[in-house]
């Protein structure tokens, strides 16, 4: 597994402090992050691949400072967003998956082979030539997963990947994420999906208020909500 380190990380948007003195050492394979709306979860996970640079402190992935090596880190860290529509760049399903592999020094044949394998893995090979924007919500999120995993990142970060999906697709995407050989960091509001995680972190008002096994972290979180 990789190691993600937050060393005294703080971040503000304008006047508003969104993260305060976060210290985390993440080495587990399946890490869940929960917390109320606006508590800072999205900001926290966006720091992992340098989409946001911290105001104070450093975030490192396997020792690499994310703020300074964003490009190298992004090749290691795949990111899944809540709304797969925003992640789709190319018109057809296969083209969108292949798009991730551009500029990686692969031959067209290698790209085609890896794209085909990723599509099959996520049950999208029937839709290879279909317009990506006409897929169902669940299929679009599968496409987003395929497009990220085709590049074989070491870490997969997902910010509420199932929020827009129905219960069945939520479960499917969560199971796929949990079944990956990669290290995964998942932000979610669907607490029932967290049982099989190795570690769950509760964020409240920009701080870590619980960091434990799913059962213990969730009971702390429920206490907070009560």
């Amino acid at each position: 597994m990789s190691t993600i380190d937050f060393d005294d990380v703080s971040h503000a948007f304008g006047e508003r402090m969104v993260l305060r003195g976060i210290r985390l050492h993440l080495t587990e394979q399946r890490i869940g992050i929960v917390g109320a709306n606006g508590s800072g979860k999205s900001t926290l996970v966006r720091l992992i691949n340098g989409l946001i640079k911290p105001d104070r402190g450093t975030v490192t992935v396997d020792g690499l400072d994310v703020a300074r090596n964003a490009k190298a880190v992004r090749r290691q860290v795949g990111f899944i967003f809540t709304n797969p529509d925003n992640q789709i760049v190319m018109p057809t399903v296969a083209e969108d998956v292949a798009f991730t592999l551009r500029r990686r020094g692969l031959t067209p044949i290698q790209i085609a082979t890896r794209t085909q394998a990723a599509l099959e893995r996520f049950g999208l090979d029937q839709h290879a030539d279909h317009p990506a924007h006409r897929l169902s919500g669940g299929q679009k999120q599968l496409l987003a997963l395929a497009a990220v995993l085709v590049a074989e990142p070491a870490i997969v970060v997902a910010d509420e990947p199932t929020t827009l999906l129905d219960a069945r697709n939520s479960r499917r995407i969560t199971e796929l994420l949990l079944g990956l050989s990669q290290q995964v960091v998942v932000v979610t509001h669907q607490l029932d999906l967290l049982a099989d995680f190795d570690r769950v972190i509760v964020i409240e008002d920009g701080q870590v208020v619980a960091d434990d096994s799913p059962a213990a972290a969730l009971s702390a979180y429920r206490g907070l909500l009560a």
Partner: peptide
């Protein structure tokens, strides 16, 4: 907003150079 989100997704896919 969508353009912003797509820009972010492009960066995440390592295509912002």
């Amino acid at each position: 907003y969508a353009a912003d989100a797509i820009g972010e997704a492009l960066a995440a896919r390592g295509l912002d150079d």
